[in-house]
Simulated assay, not measured.
Amino acid sequence: MPELPLPSSNRGIAVVSLGVSFVALGLKYAAYATSGSIALYADALETIINVVAAAGGLWALSVAELPADTNHPYGHHKAEYLSAVAEGALVVVTAFVIGDEAVHGWLHPNPPKAPWLGLGLNALATMVNLAWGLIMLRVGQKRRSPALVAGGQHVLSDVWTGVALVVGVTLIPLTGWVRLDAILAGLLAINVLRVGWEVMRESVAGLMDEAPEPETMDEIRAIIAANGKGAIEAHDIRTRIVGAVTFLEFHLVVPGTMSVNTAHDICDRIEAALRASMGSTLVHIHVEPDTHAKREGIVFWKGPAEACPAPDALPDTGAHA
């Protein structure tokens, strides 16, 4: 299946996302206006936050793509996390607003008018969101963009609530139970609150430089182990992921008699392998003599340092972690 011709930059994806959000908002507001359903009104209200969040994501991605400068020598990548935190906060506020509408609808029930037209428009908006949410999530994961992933998750959460609303609102004229409209709005508020909390939690973890998943650390260790031939060991490995960039540092122990050129070649080989596998990666390697060996971390050579063969003489058998 051919892929859609998407913009090459994350900022371009955010521009498209903003346009899609406006389309979905128009359809959902029309669904509410033609039906008068509180549940469909709550869904339209939640989509307004999608538009605001898309605009915030566009700003964040525009800032994140700026090159490093004197005031920000490590780049502007964390702007994406700020956008995701703001989006999560907006979602939480929306959940309480929707909850208030649900309570009002329960206390003052009013049967929807022309529900079938409203349901059709809402279903169309749901299909638009489903297609775009899947695209955003896939592209965000591929490009390792927190803002795109958060936006995709938000849009997809809107899809599942849209499906539930179509089913639920369909039952109102069939059963005659008018308060079901308010119940659906209340359930929507709970789901929106859950999504907002998840988005905020993941974004705060990124701002606090939380360690990556164990699988990512295992991948990093495996790459270092496979490309550190000639060194004695690698220890004190630390990493953090900021947006699409991985920051990595560790100590590389080499024989004390090894030349600077040879040690530099080993570092270059490890760095190139890390970037080839992980994309944009900023690596800092602190080279140490064999007297600083800890016999922990990734051990390339277990024998005495003076007996460590030259890199070209070592077989490609891997390292002992």
Rank of each mutant, 00 (worst) to 15 (best):
N71L: 15
Y81C: 05
K78I: 05
L45E: 07
A24T: 14
I98N: 00
V23M: 13
K78T: 00
D100T: 14
E46K: 09
Y74R: 12
H77S: 11
A44T: 01
S83P: 02
A68E: 15
A54L: 01
N50M: 02
L18N: 02
E65Q: 13
Y32F: 14
L40Q: 06
Y74S: 11
G56Q: 10
I38V: 15
T70P: 09
Y41A: 12
G36D: 07
E87N: 12
A53P: 03
L45S: 03
V15F: 13
E65R: 09
A68N: 11
A79G: 11
E87K: 12
G88Y: 04
V15R: 11
S35D: 04
E46R: 09
V91C: 12
E46A: 13
A54D: 01
L58S: 01
S17T: 13
H76Y: 01
S62W: 13
E80A: 00
I13T: 09
Y32N: 05
G36F: 06
V20F: 12
A30Y: 08
I98K: 03
A68S: 15
G36S: 08
S21A: 14
G57N: 11
H77T: 08
Y41T: 00
G19P: 02
T34H: 06
A53H: 00
G12Q: 11
N71D: 15
Y41L: 15
V63M: 02
T47A: 06
A68H: 09
